[in-house]
Lab assay of single mutants.
Amino acid sequence: SRHTFEINGERWTVEGVSEELKEILRAAERASNDEAERLLRLALKLI
């Protein structure tokens, strides 16, 4: 499935992501810059 999210003013669209990964991306959208970066690094390990 496709998911579009915005982090630090940048929009991203990813396809074929699991519900778990979507949850991480949604958390990154709400997080501070440092926390968002940490969550994105974690998410990339899952891809």
Rank of each mutant, 00 (worst) to 15 (best):
R26Q: 11
E20S: 08
I24Y: 05
L42T: 04
E19A: 08
R26E: 11
T4F: 10
V17I: 13
L25V: 02
S1M: 13
E35P: 02
T4L: 06
A31L: 07
S1L: 13
R41T: 11
L21H: 04
L44I: 12
A43P: 00
E35Q: 06
L39K: 01
K22C: 15
L39C: 04
F5M: 02
K22W: 14
L39H: 01
I7H: 02
E23F: 10
V14P: 01
L39V: 02
H3R: 03
V14K: 01
R30A: 12
R30I: 10
R38P: 02
I7M: 03
I7W: 04
R11V: 15
E15H: 13
L21I: 15
R41N: 09
R26D: 06
R11I: 15
E19P: 09
I7Q: 01
R41S: 10
V17H: 05
E10D: 06
G9W: 04
A28F: 07
A43I: 11
S32K: 08
K45M: 13
E35V: 08
V14N: 01
K22I: 15
A27H: 08
E37V: 12
R38K: 09
T13D: 06
D34L: 11
K45V: 10
E19L: 06
R41M: 10
E15A: 08
S1Q: 14
A27S: 09
R26P: 00
E6M: 14
A36G: 06
L44F: 06
E19V: 07
H3S: 07
S32R: 07
L44W: 06
G16A: 11
L21N: 02
L21A: 13
H3I: 14
T4S: 11
R38T: 07
S1H: 14
D34Y: 11
E15S: 11
R11T: 15
K45W: 13
A31R: 02
L42G: 03
V14Y: 07
V14D: 01
L40E: 00
E19Q: 10
A43L: 10
E20V: 10
S32N: 10
L44R: 07
K22H: 14
R2A: 12
R11F: 15
K22N: 08
E37S: 10
R2G: 09
R38H: 07
R38E: 08
G9V: 02
I47C: 13
E6V: 15
L25P: 00
A28Q: 02
L39E: 00
R41I: 10
G9K: 02
R2L: 14
N8Q: 05
E29V: 06
E20H: 09
A27D: 06
E35M: 06
A43E: 00
E29I: 05
L44M: 10
L42M: 09
L44H: 05
G9S: 02
L21D: 00
S1N: 14
L25K: 00
S18L: 04
S32Q: 11
G16H: 13
H3C: 14
L44Q: 04
T4A: 05
V17K: 03
T4Q: 08
L25G: 00
E10H: 11
E10V: 15
A28C: 04
W12F: 13
L42K: 07
V14F: 15
E15M: 10
G16I: 12
H3D: 13
N33Q: 14
L40P: 00
R30V: 12
R30H: 10
N8G: 05
A28R: 02
T4R: 04
L40H: 02
D34R: 09
V14E: 01
E20K: 08
R30M: 14
K22M: 15
R30C: 11
R30G: 12
A27Y: 06
K45F: 13
V14T: 04
L42V: 05
E29D: 04
E37C: 14
L42Y: 11
A43N: 00
I7L: 04
N8S: 04
E15F: 13
L21M: 09
A36T: 04
E23K: 09
L25N: 00
L21Y: 03
K22E: 13
L25Y: 02
A36S: 07
E10N: 08
F5D: 01
T13R: 03
L40R: 04
N33M: 13
E23Y: 09
E6W: 15
K22Q: 12
L46W: 09
K45C: 11
L25A: 01
L25M: 07
V14W: 07
E15Y: 15
L40M: 07
E19C: 09
A31S: 10
R38M: 11
R11C: 15
F5W: 03
E6T: 13
I24F: 04
I47D: 02
S32G: 12
W12S: 00
N33F: 15
D34Q: 13
E20R: 07
H3K: 04
E29G: 06
L42D: 03
R11P: 06
T4D: 06
S1A: 12
E29S: 10
R2K: 15
L40D: 00
L44K: 05
R38I: 10
R2H: 11
L25T: 00
K45L: 12
F5P: 00
A36Q: 10
